[in-house]
Amino acid sequence: MFEARLGQATILKKILDAIKDLLNEATFDCSDSGIQLQAMDNSHVSLVSLTLRSDGFDKFRCDRNLSMGMNLGSMAKILKCANNEDNVTMKAQDNADTVTIMFESANQEKVSDYEMKLMNLDQEHLGIPETDFSCVVRMPAMEFARICRDLAQFSESVVICCTKEGVKFSASGDVGTANIKLAQTGSVDKEEEAVIIEMQEPVTLTFACRYLNAFTKATPLSTQVQLSMCADVPLVVEYAIKDLGHIRYYLAPKIED
């Protein structure tokens, strides 16, 4: 028996919004420690890794490890039927071929349930090694989204250059060149507005704008985003999900032809 309950459907809606542009379907691996999802996008350029800890749920029970392959378009249709403040419960029997998603209004006067067919997805799992990153940048998630959106107008690629002074995002194309520099913030009143750079050595890497923009669909989940970079390894873009877990996106760098 698997049962997981969250106080607010809005969290699950935001999580789905953060992955459904990259993935058509995905396997949710459930165990007593929580729910994990790891999947590459269709082009195998990026990897999404979602971790939801069992202690972050209002109720969590998972008697046997369970892999639930879900069509994310179908799940989005179901979640559209929930009000943001509804409770949401996911339930499945062991070895079941369906999952039930139930919404309850705050006053318990409206209860709706949706049964969704599960899929058998033959998904590969990739082992992600620990990396000592050269640069780790923490910055406001909305600022990162804004930069990715703005620079995508100028080029398919964005160059991220990080030094101890700051981080520079550049794009160059037919229109010309765009550069956006962010300095590390001195003192800020609000932690969520800070730009913090931890640098071992400077790094310059090039990434495809369309993937960065897809990652920023996670912006509503978190006030801050963390970018971890190292030469010749994938960029890690991480959004914390408060009291519940995190979503990490890995993006392979572009290399010169």
């Binding site: 990897l47 082992g127 392979a252």
Partner: peptide, 12 residues
């Protein structure tokens, strides 16, 4: 040139 993400990580 865009590299694939699976060229960086091992399949398990």
């Amino acid at each position: 040139m865009q590299r694939g993400i699976d060229s960086f990580f091992k399949r398990i």
